[in-house]
């Protein structure tokens, strides 16, 4: 029982991290209907920049905050120089562009930081809990708290603020949103900035969680988050979060606890295939 609860806690943490990476992808798909594969590369850059600034300054807060700013700018740059000029073409054209950007950024990370795995030894300034015989490490507490905070902020922005309303308007119809006085391009850029800043948090957190940062750390998340937004319902942010949490728990419990002989990463794709066969709009998708 104790092992089960510990695994469950790990699973929720895994799912939280998936959610942080997937959020940006869901936001971007929601507003531009583009599969933003390069989002996972932004997550990798987020880990590197977080690590670099942490080593330079000795402060984890500066490291993560700096990484968020850097990635927000990177995300907006990709949107302005790659996606926006390609929007007038069929959706597979920006998709190919996105894959190219993903590979280019990975290689750039390899060139700049080297192919070896770097360690990210930082203590997250969060408390450790002891409940019954179960220990909740400070890393787990950090993952829970940060994910909860990010989700709360994002929920507030999308459902309460003028920006959130503008995002909903732009996601439905850009020409009409323009006619309502909304600078759609600015709203799209802000969406990329928000999604990319969250990816920076995810990258830094994963770097610390596993104590490793390497150029291809975004490859598996790139495909897995794609599966997750399909499972959650394309463009649905709550759907992406629910799918991420379910996957994190399912991976940990089925494979870690119940010892089902399947490769861990296969689960996301089995879920995606199942969703495509029986509920193509996804868990919380519309249409």
């Amino acid at each position: 029982m104790q092992l089960f609860i510990e695994q469950l806690l790990n699973g929720v943490a895994m799912g939280s991290i998936y959610a942080l990476i997937t959020l940006g992808l869901a936001l971007v798909y929601g507003i531009l209907r583009i599969l933003h594969i390069a989002h996972a590369a932004i997550y990798t850059v987020g880990a590197y920049v977080g690590l670099f600034l942490f080593k330079l300054s000795g402060s984890l807060i500066i490291g993560v905050a700096g990484s968020m700013v850097f990635c927000a700018l990177l995300g907006v740059g990709i949107e302005r120089f790659v996606y926006y000029p390609l929007l007038k073409y069929p959706p597979y054209v920006p998709l190919i562009g996105s894959i190219a950007v993903m590979l280019a950024i990975e290689e750039l990370c390899r060139l700049v930081a080297g192919p070896q795995i770097l360690t990210f030894q930082a203590v997250l300034p969060f408390p450790q809990f002891q409940i019954g015989g179960i220990t909740v490490s400070s890393t787990l507490t950090a993952v829970y708290c940060i994910t909860a905070l990010v989700l709360l902020l994002l929920w507030y922005i999308t459902s309460k603020t003028e920006l959130g309303l503008a995002m909903r308007a732009v996601s439905q119809d850009i020409p009409i949103a323009d006619a309502m006085g909304i600078n759609s391009h600015l709203i799209v850029s802000l969406t990329f900035a928000i999604g990319s800043a969250i990816a920076a948090v995810a990258g830094s957190l994963v770097g610390i969680y596993y104590n490793q940062v390497y150029p291809t750390m975004g490859t598996v998340p790139a495909y897995k988050t794609l599966a997750l937004i399909v499972v959650g319902g394309l463009g649905s942010v709550p759907g992406a979060v629910v799918a991420s949490l379910l996957l994190g728990v399912a991976e940990t419990l089925l494979i870690g606890y119940a010892n089902i002989p399947l490769p861990r990463d296969a689960l996301a794709f089995i879920a995606m295939i199942a969703v495509l066969m029986w509920r193509s709009e996804g868990l919380l998708g519309s249409r």
Partner: peptide, 29 residues
């Protein structure tokens, strides 16, 4: 805006003075 209510559709238009103001964009609609 099909998924918004009639009132919300009108509120989108009412945001016109705030959408391009990076400070006011965080205010509630």
């Amino acid at each position: 805006f099909a998924t918004l209510s009639v009132l919300e559709n009108v509120l989108v238009a009412r945001g016109i003075s705030r959408y391009n103001h990076l400070g006011k964009i965080w205010s509630s609609w």
